[in-house]
Structures are given as C-alpha cells and as structure tokens.
C-alpha cells in the first residue's frame, strides 16, 4: 500500500504528466483499426466454411462475399503485422513492457481481481497498471503473436511448413486462429467497457494525459 501512496503523491505533484507516449497512442489506434478489419473480414471467411454449428451475421462481416473478405483480410494483415511488429520491438527496446507489465504475480492478480469485483480497485495513477491490467495486456500480446503465427500457417502452409508444425497441422492452426480471435473479442468487450468506466484512461490514450 505504501508504494501506492507514493505514486499518488507523484501524480498530485505533476498532474500534466504524460501517461501514454505518442508512439503507444498511434500504434494502439492503428492496431484497433487493423484488428476490427481483420475480425470482420475474418468472420466473412469463417462463414464460407464454418468450424462450428453457427455463422456470423452477414451485417457484421466485411467484403460482401468470400472473395471480398479475403481481399480485406490479406490487405489489413499488412497493417496489423507491421504495426504489431513495430509495437513489440518498441515495447521491448524502450523497456515499456518490462516496466509496465512486470511483474505479474498470482497473488497480485488474485488481490486485484477481488478488488475489481468489489469495485475497490483504484485508478488514481494511470501510469501504473494494476495486476489485472498487466495480465490482460501481456496476455493479449501473446494472443496477438499466436493469431499472426497461426494465420501465416494457414496462408502459406507449404512455404511456412515449420510454422504449421508448431501447431501440429493445418486444421489445428485453423482452430488456434479461431480461438485467438474469440479471445481478442472477449478482451475487446472488457477493454472497451473498462475504458468507458474510467474515461480518463480513454482520454490518456487519445491526448496522452
């Protein structure tokens, strides 16, 4: 608790402190756009040959038909991959990942989940992520890497055979790709909901402060 007090004081002393640097904001919103394009075009592709007993509603798909969906998917993938790669490299090189996302301890996560569920989790200092945020943000980066790797496996199963081997075989890569998408959608719902509940965090992601 004492460390929390210290950071509170720091915030009070420097109210205009930069919370989200420009590169984080830029890459966040580029990623948001790319992800939405990938998900909506991905649902179009899914509908051509559903893995499970359901299809996505047509009005939530992109491209009009399979061919159109594929064009969107294989165009937006460049945006997603280049932006994602730049984000991971910058996050590692600047030490942001280490500083912001680590450590993640089971006790810390349990404590903050309990606090969150009882609405006692504070957001006084937006520069410090609580353990639930750390787990979700680190987790979604891992899911992001997995969805790109499984996607590349499906796109080039012969040329990138070693990637396919990572997942076992082509059909398994398809399921991995699907479940990563599901995880990202679940993240998206929670993430947007919480951003709206703590509007200053949304403001920080737009103007930085």
């Amino acid at each position: 608790m004492s460390s929390l007090t210290v950071t509170d004081e720091q915030v009070a002393a420097a109210p205009a402190k930069m919370i989200q640097p420009a590169w984080v904001r830029l890459m966040h919103w580029v990623n948001a756009l790319a992800m939405i394009l990938m998900i909506l075009s991905g649902w179009q592709i899914y509908n051509a040959s559903p893995l499970f007993g359901f299809s996505f509603p047509r009005e939530y798909t992109l491209g009009g038909w399979l061919g159109g969906g594929l064009l969107w998917h294989f165009a937006a993938m460049w945006l997603l991959m280049i932006n994602g790669l730049a984000y991971v490299i910058t996050g590692l090189a600047t030490g942001r990942f280490r500083k912001k996302l680590l450590p993640i301890t089971p006790m810390g996560v349990l404590h903050d989940v309990r606090a969150a569920l009882t609405f006692k989790l504070g957001h006084d200092d937006l520069t410090v992520y609580n353990y639930v945020q750390r787990l979700l943000y680190a987790g979604i980066i891992v899911v992001g890497v997995l969805i790109v790797l499984s996607g590349l496996s499906m796109w080039k199963p012969v040329q990138l055979y070693y990637l396919v081997m990572l997942f076992g075989d082509y059909p398994t890569a398809r399921y991995v790709h699907f479940f990563c998408m599901a995880a990202i959608c679940a993240f998206l719902v929670i993430h947007v909901l919480l951003a709206l509940l703590v509007p200053k965090s949304l403001r920080a992601m737009i103007i930085g402060r």
């Binding site: 592709i45 899914y46 051509a48 040959s49 893995l51 399979l66 082509y170 059909p171």
Partner: peptide, 10 residues
Amino acid sequence: TRHICVEGWS
C-alpha cells in the same frame, strides 16, 4: 497430399 480450399476446409 492435403487439398486446401479457399473457403478454409481441407
């Protein structure tokens, strides 16, 4: 060999 359809199934 594996035949892979543009629709995703194989």
